[in-house]
């Protein structure tokens, strides 16, 4: 029973979602919207699990003095101070509040966001410029027929605005983006769609059980 019950629940909730798709009646809409709200709320609770895991792994590293344990102290310090700022506020001379107001508007929370999160995030993102160049370099050493096709198409599209080649290259690049691209995307989309549909169906019917740890 312990093992079967979750799969019955999977079947019922999955079958309802399929059912509601064809039934526009108000009562079906009503339940549907409730279920969607529930999903978000459960997700909110799950955050605790994640934070707990992060704290545990970091604490474990520090306690056992594993390699690079000092950096875990920084992780925990960042985590706890950000949480502290996120649930308190002392703005505008209203006194000090815990949980009651404007945690996300706490000036320190905003500073951490502006001067720690944003710069690192933007820089990580900008690393893409280097990596796409190194990936392009990797592609340029293509040996097989298939890889050469990829390279050729990439070159044509990359050079599409280059005046040295004349207008035809832009036409060819646009054609590549509009025609073979459309065909391949469609083939992939159909395959993917069927793959997803099949997996979803296997989940609803209880054939696919790997995600419950019994696979």
């Amino acid at each position: 029973m312990r093992r079967q019950l979750p799969f019955i629940l999977v079947f019922l909730s999955g079958a309802f979602m399929v059912f509601q798709y064809f039934v526009p009646h108000e009562s079906s809409e009503f339940v549907y919207e409730f279920l969607l709200d529930w999903l978000t709320i459960i997700g909110g609770f799950a955050m605790v699990l994640g934070i707990w895991s992060l704290i545990r792994v970091s604490y474990d590293k520090i306690q056992r003095k594993r390699e690079n344990w000092g950096y875990s102290v920084i992780t925990l310090a960042g985590l706890f101070s950000m949480i502290f700022f996120g649930i308190t506020n002392w703005q505008d001379g209203f006194g000090f509040y815990i949980l009651q107001a404007d945690g996300l508007n706490n000036p320190m929370f905003v500073h951490f966001f502006d001067y720690i999160l944003i710069p690192i995030q933007a820089t990580m993102f900008s690393l893409l410029a280097f990596f796409i160049a190194s990936a392009a370099y990797r592609a340029f050493r293509a040996r097989s027929v298939i890889a050469s096709l990829l390279l050729l198409a990439a070159l044509i599209v990359m050079m599409r605005f280059n005046p040295l080649f004349g207008a035809w290259i832009e036409d060819v690049a646009n054609w590549l983006m509009n025609v073979p691209n459309l065909a391949a995307q469609r083939a992939i989309v159909i395959g993917l769609g069927l793959g997803m549909v099949a997996t979803a169906l296997k989940i609803i019917l209880g054939i696919e059980r790997g995600y419950m740890g019994q696979g």
């Binding site: 997700g43 799950a46 955050m47 605790v48 699990l49 994640g50 934070i51 895991s53 790997g210 995600y211 419950m212 740890g213 019994q214 696979g215």
Partner: peptide, 14 residues
């Protein structure tokens, strides 16, 4: 994702 972590732990354990 925390839920992904939960499931993955379960999967690896079994």
């Amino acid at each position: 994702d925390p839920i992904v972590m939960t499931v993955a732990q379960e999967v690896v354990k079994s």
